[in-house]
Computed example of a mutant assay.
Amino acid sequence: MKQIRWGFIGCGEVTEKKSGPAFREVEGSDVVAVMGRNPRKTRLYAERHHIPKWYTDASELIDDPDVNAIYIATPPSSHATFAIMAMKAGKPVYVEKPLASSYDDCVRVNRVSEQTGIPCFVAYYRRYLPYFVKVKNLVNSGAIGKIMNVQLRFSCPPREIDHSIPSELPWRLQPDISGGGYFYDLAPHQFDLLQYMFGIIIKTEGICINRGGFYKAEDTISACFQFESGVPGSGSWCFVGHESSRDDRIEVIGDAGMLSFSVFSYAPIELITSEGQTSITVPNPPYVQLPIIKSVIEHLQGSNVCVCTSVSATPVNWVMDRILGKF
């Protein structure tokens, strides 16, 4: 069995529980090096997780002969740069979502992956979670009949950190780093799931406004879209709403019933048909990225095929950039 020896570029919060430990849960996989900009934090991370090597220079980690695969867990603005560096060095890449901070950068990544023949995978791990596998199976089984419409709603109050002065705002609210505001951070998971279920979105338009005034990025978005299957859909996002408006829900309307589910809270799946209403609870693994990381590792070992590639992830950025009016 081929041994996959990972090097992490970035060692922030997401690597602590969501992803990092999962790399050692799969047979034939280990983490041998980590890179971070802050020497002290990077060293402590390496010690805490028993990782033998740590760097503050991404080039040194990529060039390390003991590393043969790269996990990129940095803010989106640097995803394309590091992914391209790794692929040109002959090392496969697994990159956090979204693939990049713009559609154009996604295209650059895909071009290099094609030229080098080195695969690039993207962490749209919800595709592989039991909760969403159940949702997709219900849709595909015809449980609610022919799909007629998809409606997405997300609303939450502003966070305390949103009130910070501009220089102290989190990177997610700095469009030059994140690609947009909270929309660019959260909507990728929603759009990836919807396109995985209903096909690529071929048309979309959006209205994007800043209503709260806490920061410059958009905080309220409404959009309509159409999937290649012909199904129309709509979405609304508000990151400055009142607590009473908190919502995380996608409704799939069919001609024989309706299916609703959440994306982030994993609330019970609700299935409503002429036979009545059913509430379905589906537990997820403790490390939510474990199923997709297992698929990526098995792909690199030659025993499986992971379909969550940079090519399949790129339409998400196209949709978001169109909604935000980037082109």
Results as ranks from 00 to 15, higher is better:
Val282Lys: 01
Asn137Asp: 15
Ser303Val: 14
Pro291Cys: 02
Gln115Arg: 10
Ser279Cys: 10
Phe183Arg: 04
Gly36Ile: 09
Gly10Ile: 08
Val67Pro: 10
His49Trp: 13
Met85Ala: 12
Arg249Tyr: 02
Leu44Phe: 09
His189Ala: 11
Lys136Gly: 14
Met148Lys: 15
Arg43Thr: 11
Phe227His: 12
Leu173Val: 05
Gln195Ile: 01
Asn284Met: 07
Ala313Lys: 06
Thr116Ile: 04
Gln226Ile: 12
Tyr131Gln: 02
Ile250Ser: 07
Asn68Thr: 07
Val288His: 13
Phe214Trp: 11
Trp6Leu: 11
Leu152Glu: 15
Ala267Ile: 07
Asn210Phe: 03
Ala256Pro: 00
Asp30Leu: 07
Ile269Arg: 06
Asn317Glu: 08
Asp248Ile: 04
Tyr131Asp: 06
Pro39Ile: 06
Pro283Leu: 03
Ala33Gly: 14
Asn137Lys: 15
Phe8Arg: 07
Asp57His: 12
Ser265Asp: 13
Phe327Gly: 12
Val107Cys: 10
Gln151Thr: 13
Asn317Arg: 01
Lys326Trp: 04
Cys208Tyr: 04
Ser279Trp: 07
Tyr184Ile: 00
Thr273Pro: 09
Met85Gly: 02
Pro166Thr: 03
Ala33Tyr: 06
Ala86Arg: 06
Arg108Leu: 14
Arg246Phe: 08
Asp105Ser: 13
Asn210Lys: 09
Gly117Pro: 00
Asp248Pro: 04
Gly276Arg: 11
Lys216His: 14
Asp30Gly: 03
Ser303His: 10
His242Met: 10
Pro286Asn: 10
Gln115Phe: 03
Phe227Trp: 05
Glu270Trp: 00
Asn110Phe: 06
Phe225Ala: 07
Ile70Phe: 05
Ile200Gly: 03
Ile221Met: 04
Ser245Met: 13
Ile253Val: 13
Val32Ile: 14
Ile144Asn: 04
Val240Ala: 07
Tyr128Val: 07
Arg5Trp: 00
Pro130Phe: 07
Lys134Leu: 01
Gly145Asp: 03
Ser262Met: 00
Leu194Gly: 02
Lys294Ala: 12
Gly235Tyr: 10
Ala123Glu: 12
Phe132Glu: 01
Ile272Asn: 14
Ala83Glu: 07
His189Val: 04
Ala187Gln: 10
Asp192Pro: 00
Phe327Ile: 10
Gly181Tyr: 03
Ala217Phe: 08
